[in-house]
Amino acid sequence: MIEFQLDSTSGVATYLQLVQQVHQALQLGLLEPGDQLPTAQQVVGKLAINPNTVLKAYRDLEREGLARARPGQGTFIVGTLPRTDPAAQARFLASMAKWLVSARSAGLGPDDIEAIYRTAFRNCFAEGVA
């Protein structure tokens, strides 16, 4: 069973952190269809968060078709997410490192680079944001 962690400094809403952790666990193969998610009681007993937060996260996962609640039993994983390909990850890490080196040698500092990255990231994922 997966164990949730919270990062209170991330600025990401608590329920979203839970959803993302399930996504990651699915991508890494730590969770598979048939696995049970911890009950709301178990999660709040550990993280001291509002039970509605857990239920909201689980409802989101249900909406995505990744989990299903079985009355009286709990919430179970029913869907999968494509695993992240480790080779692809390594390839993009390498090209990013190369890009960073060239940016530095062009005289850009860490702040400039971060601003460029953030802008590009925002533009790339802008669809879907109101």
């Binding site: 709301a40 009681q41 709040v44 007993g45 550990k46 993280l47 001291a48 968060i49 509002n50 039970p51």
Partner: peptide, 14 residues
């Protein structure tokens, strides 16, 4: 504090 709130949240859930 954390333990107190854990207990409280468990009670809310139960």
């Amino acid at each position: 504090r954390r333990e107190f709130l854990q207990t409280l949240m468990e009670v809310v859930a139960e």
